[in-house]
């Protein structure tokens, strides 16, 4: 896909603060009209990357093309942004905050006002339109901020950790909003470290750790990174299963179940057959593709723990 038609392209982008390298040679391509997940543990460099994409900070080296432009500020009216740390003007009313940010993005003030009330109404905050933001609950405030990022109907929406701090109901509402944006042909890039959202939403994703990209592709491609596995529960010894052809490892999971790692291409049916032959009494048996969570832990587990200890 040529660069001009991509929503976003990063090439060898690096950001250094003195001796510390926050982002190291990051390259990404986000096609238009998709939901792109930007995954990684805390401190992976996601927020720094997003700030560079938005031209809030400048990369030390590398190039960034947003909506075909080398400068995000040049196309800022077509971008919507919800930052990781959420905040609002305390003394301003909900509608006027949304309208203000919309006018900064080039919407005329009358339309901005109208759209603010419409959005608040549509997302169940109509009764709070005239309330000062300091009187809203945290979740409501976050919703107001999201609406402020969307009020100018941007083509490209960047959401930094949008799910954090929302209750499950509102997380679902947010997922609906994101899906709806894609339905209307918008591009969404969001960062998260909660894999279940990425699993449900993403068309493509990238996993970062320690400032480096370690994966980019579709969720299916991500899952294919891990060998298939079988999960079973039994009160008998699983030792005989370790000898089976195609089984590379057996380990007990924290919930007491056993997990067998298989060589790619091994048929789980054969394992089940072997269990019967060994007369193992099974209370559960499942053959599942690995979850994104497992891929994530597999890819960044060590790195994430390292970050945590640092």
């Amino acid at each position: 896909m040529p660069v001009e038609s991509l929503a976003l392209q990063l090439q060898e982008v690096t950001k250094r603060y003195g001796d510390f390298t926050a982002v190291n040679g990051l390259s990404l391509s986000v096609p238009p009209g998709c939901i792109f997940g930007f995954l990684g543990p805390n401190g992976a460099g996601k927020t720094t990357s997003i700030r560079m994409i938005l031209e809030i900070i400048k990369p030390t080296s590398g190039s960034i093309t947003v909506l075909g432009s080398p400068s995000a500020l040049a196309v800022r009216k077509r971008i919507g942004y919800l930052p990781e740390e959420k905040g609002l003007y305390k003394k301003m009313k909900a509608w006027s905050i949304i309208a203000y940010f919309a006018t900064l993005k080039g919407v005329d003030s009358r339309t901005a006002r109208k759209r603010a009330f419409e959005l608040l109404e549509r997302y169940g905050l109509g009764a709070f339109a005239e309330k000062k933001s300091e009187t809203l609950s945290k979740g409501m405030g976050q919703k107001v901020q999201l609406l402020a990022a969307l009020a100018h109907d941007p083509e490209f929406v960047i959401l930094d950790e949008p799910f954090s701090g929302l209750d499950p109901v509102n997380q679902e509402v947010l997922e609906e909003i994101v899906v709806d944006l894609r339905r209307r042909g918008r591009t969404v890039l969001f960062s998260t470290h909660v894999m279940s959202h990425a699993e449900r939403l993403c068309d493509r994703l990238s996993i970062m750790a320690g400032g480096r990209k370690i994966f980019e592709g579709t969720p299916a491609e991500a899952r294919a990174l891990l060998p298939p596995r079988v999960r079973l529960r039994t009160s008998h010894s699983v030792a005989p299963l370790q000898q089976l052809p195609g089984v590379t490892a057996v380990r007990q999971l924290p919930d007491g179940a056993w997990e067998l790692q298989l060589v790619t291409g091994t048929d789980p049916q054969g394992i089940l057959q072997a269990c019967f032959e060994q007369r193992l009494v099974l209370s559960a048996f499942s053959a599942e593709a690995p979850a994104l969570h497992d891929v994530f832990v597999h890819l960044v587990g060590d790195e994430a723990r390292e970050v945590k200890l640092r």
Partner: peptide, 15 residues
Amino acid sequence: EEKSNRIIEVLLSSV
């Protein structure tokens, strides 16, 4: 206020 509320970041993506 804008700094401590981190509003500044949204602002700087717009202005």
